[in-house]
Every structure is written in C-alpha cells, then in structure tokens.
Computed example of a mutant assay.
Amino acid sequence: MNYKIAICDDSAADRQYLYGLVGRWAANTGHTVQIALFPSAENFLFHYTEKNDYDILLLDIEMGDMDGVTMSKKLRQDNDTIQIVFITGYSDYISEGYEVAALHYLMKPVKQERLFSVLDRAAEKLSKNEKVLNIEIGGELVRIPVYQIRYADVFRNYVTIHASDTLTVKMTLGELEKKLDDRFYRVGRSVVVNLTQISRVTKTEIKLFDGVSIPLPRGAYDDVNRAIINMR
C-alpha cells in the first residue's frame, strides 16, 4: 500500500529522527510512503489547504503559537479519516486526544518498536475505511462507507442507519451487525454504535462527537469502556 504521512514537529532533530523511523517501517512492511515534514502547525495547515490527502499524521503537541491539539480540532472539522498520532513529552494531554479521535500517544523519546506498532494499527484502520456497505432501497443500490456510520437504531422491522445521510431499510439489527466490523458495539437491543464516534461515556449515556446521546442500559458502562480500550 502507498501512504502519505505528515510529520509535524518544531524540532528539526525530532522531525529527521521520525523521518528515518517511518522509512524503516515502510521498508520492513513493504509499504510505499511519501513523507512530508512540517516545522509548525501553521505551516502544515497552509499546505493542507492545497493537498489534504494525508493518511497518517505524526504530530507534536507542544509547538509555538498553535499546539497540536488545537490544530487537530481544526483538521477534524472536515477530515475524519486521517490517523492522528500525538508525539509528546508529557502525559497531561491524553484526555484531550479523545476529542479528536487520536489513534495513539507516543512519549518522547519515541521508541522504534512502539512507532512501528502504531503505524501497523494506522494502516489496518485505513484499510478498514475502504469497506463499503451495500444497501438496496426502493430498487436502488446505495453504497455507504462503513467508517461514516455513526450509529444505527431499530424500530419494529426497520433499521435506520445514521451516516453522512440517514437511511431506513427493512432488516433486523442482527443482520446489519453481520455486515459491520469490530468498530461497532451493540448497545442493548436497539442500537449499534461506532466506537470511534464516541466522545464520552457516562453511567447513563453514550455521547457521540456529533452531539447525539444514546441511553446506556443499566450495568453496561464497564463493557462499553472495555470495548473502546480493546479497540484502541
């Protein structure tokens, strides 16, 4: 596979170090990579307006005027597929990574085996994003990228799929589950939710990034959190 990878770090030494590691990962795995280096968040965003097709972003958090978390929030406004990996010397920012669906945190100095493992996961998730759900509605075939599905709920004999568009189709929730993958979790009897779309979990509800609240059945809190941890 061919991947476009951006490395954004205000330290020239760290940029070059990561550049070498990414090249080594590509050679070991047989992937082809195009690597672009950026010295600041502002510099990355300037170039991103023209070329916004990066697959993986290795992003330093502590940088100049704009930090990595702030930049990621801007990026997520129109890009929900790029795999963001935070690089940091501190553990204080980990909770903020959930806001931008960061794939992982790597602590400086970055170890080769840890980076290789994270890049393997990023490549796996990118390949999953190519999966498409084919739904026939009214004699028409509708193709839905699976990663776009935020959740699906059932009412009587119909399932409503909430993606970039909202579609209702006659099927059971169990039938839909078989067409999905391990990013999806069954919440009670009536909802399947995309774990990557969850921003917060409380004892009573699941909150998605788009603001939707899904009631959480009694006693399901620990199971949902375990599913999120295992997925990550």
Rank of each mutant, 00 (worst) to 15 (best):
G138H: 10
R143T: 09
L126P: 06
K170D: 04
S127A: 15
L167A: 00
R156D: 12
G138I: 01
T168L: 05
A123L: 05
S164T: 14
M171S: 09
A123R: 09
P145F: 07
V118N: 09
R121I: 01
V142G: 00
L126M: 12
E130R: 14
E140K: 15
R156L: 13
A152D: 10
T166W: 00
T168S: 14
D120G: 06
V118Y: 11
S127F: 06
G139Q: 09
M171F: 08
T160D: 01
S164M: 12
L133Q: 04
E136L: 13
K125A: 02
F155K: 10
L133T: 02
Y158Q: 11
A152L: 09
V154H: 02
T160G: 03
S164H: 13
V154N: 04
R143G: 01
E140W: 00
L119R: 07
A163W: 01
Y151S: 01
V169K: 07
R143C: 11
V154C: 08
D165E: 15
L119Q: 10
A163F: 08
E130F: 02
L126I: 11
V154P: 00
M171Q: 13
E124L: 10
H162L: 07
T166V: 14
D165C: 03
A122P: 04
E130P: 00
L133V: 05
K125T: 01
S127G: 04
P145K: 07
I135M: 15
L141Y: 02
E136V: 15
I149D: 05
K170N: 07
Q148T: 14
D120S: 12
D165A: 13
Q148P: 00
G139W: 07
G138S: 10
I135E: 09
V118C: 15
H162D: 01
R143E: 12
